[in-house]
């Protein structure tokens, strides 16, 4: 059975026992999808599944605390669900998880960098290519070139937690070594160049907080220190210093919690590669605590606990 048919069948079976099921439907044109809230059987017909289903829908779960909801997850999205459960931000019995073994989703910014997407008339998938139709003609791009960066190093294509799985589990064929490739590139720059790089990128930040609000683990949301009125923690000015400060604030608050889902960067309307900052912290966390967020329900995230002596932190010798 096709993945989509299986999903629809499983959702039909569970719909009565939940307030709603969150999936994807076609968005304002054929290149864009949008989250779908399935409330009645007729809504199920609108469900779609393809490499354009980019959103990590687990971001919505904390909003629905206290209600039982269904959620569609890709492999990466399932890590968010696990991390949310680890942090007790959601309850296991309040979510019904429809897992999808995933071969990767696109990065719309990478497509936009190659094709003028303002007048897309149609999109189709042909084997390992995406075909985009515009008034200027059809453009085919190899999927491999426009996949989301997280997909290129994805180690968990099959969800790590689910109640229903739409299809056969698949295992990763992606080299784990690529996980921090972008970070390693930036680490090679000397501090001055590195600063210049981030200055250039962050200059165009508009402090819209799409990165924060899209992040499924950014749970303070309405009570975020970045725009708190009282106490007035952070200046509301929009100079480069304040923009740096905001990014550091977000990244630090995600230390040992970020599951590398990429929503922050995907949501950024200015296409700033901000996930790299989170990735750098993920790398440190991995080196220091051997921890990867959202892969093991039984483990306590490192900053949620305390060890008198951490094996990787040399307290007694230098």
């Amino acid at each position: 059975m096709e993945i989509l048919d299986k999903l629809k069948e499983d959702i039909r079976g569970e719909l009565e026992g939940v307030s709603l099921v969150i999936g994807w439907e076609r968005g304002y044109d054929s290149l864009h999808t949008t989250p779908l809230f399935i409330r009645c059987p007729e809504d199920i017909d609108r469900l779609i599944w393809n490499p354009l289903c980019v959103h990590n829908l687990a971001s919505y779960l904390p909003w629905f605390k206290g209600r039982r909801v269904g959620i569609l997850v890709k492999g990466c999205d399932s890590r968010t669900v696990i991390q949310l459960l680890q942090e007790r931000l959601i309850q296991r019995e309040e979510v019904v998880i429809f897992g999808i073994p995933c071969q990767g989703v696109v990065d719309l910014a990478k497509i936009r960098a190659r094709v003028d997407c303002s007048q897309v008339r149609g999109v189709s998938f042909k084997g390992d290519k995406i075909a985009i139709e515009t008034p200027q003609g059809q453009r085919e791009l190899p999927l491999e070139e426009i996949l989301a960066t997280k997909c290129i190093s994805c180690q968990y294509p099959t969800p790590l937690i689910y109640d229903h799985l739409a299809g056969e589990a698949i295992s990763s064929h992606r080299p784990p070594g690529l996980l921090f490739a972008e970070v390693e590139k930036i680490e090679k720059l000397d501090p001055k160049e590195r600063f210049a790089y981030w200055q250039q990128e962050l200059q165009r930040c508009i402090r819209c907080y799409a990165c924060r609000n899209a992040c499924p683990l950014c749970v303070c949301q309405d009570f975020c220190a970045a725009d708190a009125r009282d106490p007035h923690w952070l200046s509301q000015k929009t100079g480069i210093g304040e923009k740096f400060m905001w990014q550091i604030l977000h990244a630090i608050h995600l230390a040992g919690r970020c599951t590398d889902c990429g929503e922050c960067e995907r949501a950024c309307p200015m296409d700033i590669p901000i996930q790299r900052i989170r990735k750098k912290i993920n790398k440190e966390i991995k080196e220091l605590f051997g921890y990867e967020a959202g892969v093991n329900l039984e483990v306590t995230p490192p900053l949620y606990t305390f060890q008198v002596e951490e094996p990787a932190i040399k307290e007694r010798e230098w």
Binding site: F37, I206, R207, C208, A210
Partner: peptide, 13 residues
Amino acid sequence: SAKCISCGACTYL
């Protein structure tokens, strides 16, 4: 507004 994430992208742009 169910799918809205309440960010400022729409207003600021």
